[in-house]
Write a protein that binds this DNA or RNA. Sequence first.
DNA 1: AACTTCACG
DNA 2: GACGTACGTGAAGTTC
Length: 948
Amino acid sequence: MAEGFGKGCHLHLIDGSAFIFRAYHALPPLTRKSDGLPIGAVSGFCNMLFKYVEEAKGADAPTHVAVIFDKGSHTFRNDLYDQYKANREAMPEDLRPQIPLTRTATEAFNIACKELAGYEADDIIATLARQAREAGGRVTILSSDKDLMQLVGGGVEMLDPMKNVQIGPEEVEKKFGVTPDKVIDVQALAGDSVDNIPGAPGIGIKTAALLINEYGDLETLLERAGEIKQPKRRQTLIDNADQIRLSKQLVTLDPETPIDFTLDDLEVRDPEPETLMKFLNEMEFRTLTRRVAEKSGTTPPPALEPVAKATGGAAEAGGSAVTLPEAAPFTPENYVHIKDAATLAKWLDKARARGWLAIDTETTSLDEMQADLVGVSLAIEPNEAAYLPLGHTEGGDDLFGGAQLVPEQMGLQEALALLKPVLEDPSILKIGQNMKYDFKILARHGIRMAPIEDTMLLSYSLHAGLHGHGMDTLSDRYLNHQPIPIKDLIGSGKSQITFDKVPLEKAVAYAAEDADITLRLWQLFKPQLHAQKATTIYETEERPLVPVLADMEMAGVKVDASVLARMSNVFAQKMAQLEDEITEIAGQKFNVGSPKQLGEILFDVMGVEGGKKGKTGAYSTGADVLEDITTMEDRNPAAAKLASAVLDWRGISKLKSTYTDALQTHVNPETGRVHTSYSIAGANTGRLASTDPNLQNIPVRSDEGRRIREAFVAPEGRRIVSLDYSQIELRILAHVAQIDALKQAFREGVDIHAMTASEMFNTPVEGMDPMIRRQAKAINFGVIYGISGFGLARNLRIPRAEAQGFIDRYFERFPGIRQYMEDTTAFAKEHAYVETLFGRRINTPEINAKGPGAGFAKRAAINAPIQGAAADIIRRAMVRMPEAIKGIDATMLLQVHDELIFEVAEADVDRLIATAREIMEGAAEPAVKLDVPLIVDAGQGLSWAEAH
DNA sequence: AACTTCACG
DNA sequence: GACGTACGTGAAGTTC
C-alpha cells in the first residue's frame, strides 16, 4: 500500500457526544468512591470504548479511527440563527465535570480525539468523511444521529453502535423517504424541534419527502411552489421560503471545516496497557481495569488508597452509588422452547434446586380480567431461560373457522398441573416484573403464586423519583440492553395481532428474554435494598400489597350500567340544547369542545380583552378564565352569557365522556363489574394510581357529578361501606413539624381550620366566620403543597399582597412549619432525596438544578414526606386488612388515597366498620407512634353515593 | 404525540 | 431583581 490514507483504507468516525450522552443516561449516577466525583458517564463511555476496541479487531477492521467531540456551545449556526438549539436543556450538573474526562479517556485508549471551536462534531465528521471518500477509502460513522445521515453513500455508511445495525442508503431512505443526497432538503422543510430548526410550519418528514420527490429538489420546489394544489401547503411554502432556506443552511453539514490535522494522523494504534490501566485505576473502574489486564496479560495496578472522603456532597444521593456487575452478554440462541412435560419437569427441577425462578406470562390482552394465557417463560440464571407456549393458534380469521392450536405445545392443563406445586411452593421464590399482572393471570387458573419478588417494586423502592420502572427502562438503564420491542412481534395500531398469533420461534426469543432480564434485574437490585435502607418499605408495604391489590382488582365493583346509560341520555340532550344556545350567542357554529376555536370566538370575534395565550399561541380558556368572563355582564354581556353556557356544557361533557359513557364500556361482561387496575409504582410519593378505568377520580365535589356514584352499588343483601381518614396529611404535618398547637387541636378533636383561623386572626373558634375559616383552610392545604403567595392568591382569588400577608402571619404563629419546610429543602439539597416517617425514600434529582425546575422540585420535596407518609399508612392498613377481616363477609374493593371501600353483607356492616377502623387507625404502629390520633370516618349504604 | 382541560385526594 | 409558582395523579378530546 502506498503511503497515507487511500484506497483500501477504512476510517471509523465515532460521534463522541452521542457516546457520552448515551453513557450518561444508560447508567445510574455513579460516583467515585474515594471522593464522590460523578463518573457514571465516564464509566459508561470507557465501557463503550473498550467494547468498541475489542469488536473492531474483526474482519472488517478499521485502519484509521477518531472520536469527534463538540467544542463549546457556540457555532457558526448560532451566528446564522440565534434561536439554533435554543430550547436545548442545559447540561446536567453532574455531567459537566465528566466531559473533559471523556477526552482523557479517549487518549488513554490511544484513539485520536478531535474537536474544533466554532464547529459541531458533525461538521468535522462531514469533512473527514469527504476527505476519506475522495482519497478512495471507506468510512463508517458510529452514530445513529439522523443529522449525519446526509453523509451516507459513496463509500460512507453509518453504524448504530447500540443496536449494532448498519445504516446505508436504504435505511436512510426508509427514514426520510428520499435518497441521502436529498435528506437536507427534507430536513429543511420538516424542521427539527430538538435543534429548534424552524422548517415549514405544518410540514413533517412525510409531506416533505413527498414534495421533494415530486419537484426534485428544494430550490425547484420553492420556485414552483405556486403550482401546489393544496392551498394551505402552497401558502406555507410561499410565506416561509426564507425560513426554509435558512433551515437548509442550518442542517447542512460543513464538509470544509478548517481542521489542522490529516487523515494520516488518525491511524489505528493499539492501546498501551500501562497508560490505559493507569487511567482506569485512577477512575477506580475496578472491573474494567481487570479486564484490560486480562487482555494484555499484565497484572492490574493495586487499587489506590482511598483518600479522605470529601465532606458532604449530594453526589451519592438517592440509591445511586452502585457498581454494575460485569454483565454477561445476552445469548438468545441459548433460550429453550419447552415442548413436552419431560422438558418442563427438568426446568422445574432446576428451580427447586436453585430456590428461585423468574417468571413471565404471555397473554392475549393487557386487561388481566379478559386475557387468555398464551405461554409462560422461565429463567434460572442469566441466559438460562425458556418459553413454554400453551395457547398459540393459527387460522380462525375466516367467518366460521375456529382457530387451531399450533403443534409443538404442551397441553394447558397438563402444564398448569406441573407448574402449580412449584409456583405455590413456599421454599421457591417466584420473581417477576410487575407481578400483580402474572399473579392475576395465574390466579384465574387456580394458582396463587407465593412467595413472590417483583423487580418493578424493587426498582420503585430504590429509585422512586429517578425514572420509571417498566422493564424496557430498567433493562436499558441497568443492563445496557434493549429488549425486543413487542411491536416487532404483534405490530401496532389497526393491524396489531394478539400474542397467540405470534410464531413460536419469535415468541421464544421475546418471552424468554423477558424472564432473563427479570432475573438479571433481580440479581442486581436485591442486594442493594439493604445498602439503600429500602428493605423495610419493600418488605412491609410494596411486596405484600401485590396479592392484596390483585384480589381487589379481581373482585371489582358492581356498577349498574343502566343508571349510567340513563344519565348519558339526559346529558346528551342537555348538551345539544346548550350547543344550540351557544351557536346562537356566538352567531356561528363551532366546535365547543375546541379550546382553540372557543378562544378565537371569545377574544377575537367578540372582543373580550385580556386573553392570554399559552406557549402554543392558543388562548387559554380554562374554567377560571371563563368564570372571569361571566362576570363581565355589563361590559360584554354576550361573551358573559357564552362563557357561562360553555362552562355548563363542559361540565356535562366531562361527566358524559369520562364517566357515564366510558364507565359503561368498562363493565366486564362476565362479572357485570368494573375491574380497575392499580399501579403500585406509578406515583413517586407512594400513592397508588388507578387506571382503566381510573376509579380514584369519580366526581364528588358537585351535586350533579356525585350522582355518578349512585351507579356504584352493592348486590342484593350487601352494602357499600366507605372508611376514610380525617385530615390525615395535616395530622402528619403536625407530627413531623412538631407543632404543639396543631397537635393539641387534633387531640381535642376541634375543627382544625377554624382553629387555624382563630390563631391567625385572634378570633374565637365559636361562631367563626365561614369565609375566614375557608381562607384558613386554603392556607392549611397550601402549606402541605409548599405554599407561595402567588398560588394562595390565585386559589383564594385575592390580591397577591394580601395572600402574602396571610402566609407571613401564619408562619409567625406557626414558626415550626417554616422551620420544617426549610429543614426539608436543606435535607433534599444535601441528599437529593427526602424520606417519610416510615423510611420511604423519594428521590428529588432536580432539587439542585438551576432554573424554574428548582421551584417545582422544592415544593415537591416539601410535599413528598407528607403525602408519602399518608400513603405509607394506608398501604400498611391495606396489607393487614385481609387477615383482619377474615371472619367477616366483606371484600375490600377500592382505595382512593385516604379512603377504603368495601362490599359487606348487610349483617356484618357494623363488625366490618369496627374492625377496619381499628386497623386503619392503628396502621402507623408499631413502626411509628404518632403524637396525634388518626381518626377514621365511616359511612354505609346501597351505593357509593350513600356510603361516602 | 403534545397540549389543554378537568375529575379526584 | 426577575421568573414562574401551590402537591400528586389519569382520561378524553383536539390539533398537528
